[in-house]
């Protein structure tokens, strides 16, 4: 295994915007979920009417929401401006034959039907496709979140800009969607961390540390 260590080199895969938006998303999702739980089902923490517990929780929730939205928008931009590993093609592997083949291989490995662990330099194809769904979920969460916030100002710009969403959802349906979206993201986070760990161990491609440093060990010629 260590015979030809020298043939490996550290390849810069995840650029700064990719890693930055990843960690902003992680932080935002944690903060949004914790504050969101309180907003959805609060406890009496105010002792006197002059307290501002829910007020502050909502301020934090909205601030994190804006940070999350900026992060999502930046990442979408970087999908067109960044390197090939950040590019939009990574997230739609199902549209080209090679991507479909890689998705199939990965799926067979997950189902214990194959012992061969695919080792792509960027995202594995199945993960890339999953992130497309996750991004759709992000957009749903941001859209419904801002739409719910905009209700306090019916004539306001945000309310007008998001008008199609109010036609798409009933008022309570929008709240339910926003709430269930959080649970789906929590389920995704569990899956995401597990899969990253699994791939780190099995694929031996240094995926876990790459999201911190940006480098992956790659064979020469790749």
């Amino acid at each position: 295994m260590a015979r030809n260590r020298s043939c490996l080199y550290e390849k810069y895969v995840w650029e700064v915007p990719v890693r930055l938006t990843h960690w902003v998303n992680v932080t935002a999702i944690i903060v949004l979920s914790v504050t969101g739980f309180y907003i959805g089902s609060p406890k009496t923490l105010g002792l006197v009417p002059a307290d501002f517990v829910m007020g502050w929780v909502r301020v934090v929730h909205l601030t994190a929401g804006y940070a999350f939205a900026v992060s999502i928008a930046s990442r979408i931009w970087w999908a067109f401006a960044g390197n090939r590993y950040a590019g939009w093609r990574e997230f739609v592997p199902f549209v080209y034959p090679e991507g479909r083949r890689d998705m199939g291989r990965m799926f067979l490995y997950y189902l214990f039907l194959s012992r061969k662990v695919p080792h792509p330099t960027g995202h594995n194809a199945l993960a890339g496709a999953t992130y497309l769904l996750v991004f759709v979920l992000y957009l749903v969460m941001a859209g419904t979140g801002f739409a719910l916030d905009a209700e306090h100002a019916p004539g306001g710009m945000m309310r007008v800009l998001l008008a199609p969403l109010y036609a798409l959802f009933s008022n309570q349906g929008m709240r339910l969607t926003h709430h269930m979206g959080m649970w789906l993201l929590i389920a995704f986070a569990i899956h995401h961390i597990y899969s990253a760990w699994l791939m780190d161990v099995k694929e031996r491609g240094g995926v876990m540390s790459s999201i911190f440093g940006g480098y992956k060990p790659v064979k020469r010629g790749e």
């Binding site: 295994m1 015979r3 030809n4 260590r5 043939c7 490996l8 490995y109 997950y110 214990f112 012992r115 061969k116 662990v117 080792h119 597990y194 760990w197 699994l198 161990v201 099995k202 694929e203 031996r204 491609g205 060990p217 064979k219």
Partner: peptide, 20 residues
Amino acid sequence: IHGVVSALRKGDESDAGKEG
């Protein structure tokens, strides 16, 4: 469960570890 099975499973091959 997937993790437990994966941990006990031997013989998975990755081309990442086998350079050259």
